[in-house]
């Protein structure tokens, strides 16, 4: 099942990239279409971000991931590169779990 998901997802991703090279420009260049395409990543990333921080299955929870997200926010505000933000999130979450402060 995971393989099917991986492959279908990959084919769709390639199809979108390839579409831009073969279809006539006017189909994608209306202002509304551009806005939609630029807002979709913003919206999905924001949704994924909070859901993957505050949920466990369909329950809302607060655990060590919140601390991790806080550390990532500080890193990014200080203009740290992506990898540093991700590492600081993992390290801080691991630390508060090790100390037993949050599950």
């Amino acid at each position: 099942m995971i393989w099917a998901t991986v492959l279908i997802g990959s084919i769709s991703a390639f199809a979108l990239k390839f579409a831009g090279f073969v279809i006539p420009e006017r189909f994608l260049t209306t202002t509304t279409m551009r806005r939609v395409t630029l807002l979709i990543p913003v919206s999905l990333l924001a949704g994924l971000l909070v859901v993957q921080t505050f949920s466990s299955g369909s329950t809302l929870v607060i655990d060590a991931r919140v601390v991790g997200l806080g550390a990532a926010t500080v890193s990014l505000a200080l203009r740290a590169p992506l990898l540093v933000a991700v590492l600081s999130a993992a390290a801080s979450a691991a630390l508060v779990r090790y100390l037993g402060w949050l599950p």
């Binding site: 990333l45 993957q52 921080t53 991931r65 997200l69 550390a71 990014l76 933000a85 991700v86 999130a89």
Partner: peptide, 9 residues
């Protein structure tokens, strides 16, 4: 915790 951090980045 690295997953939401990646989305934030």
């Amino acid at each position: 915790a690295a997953i939401p951090a990646a989305f934030l980045a």
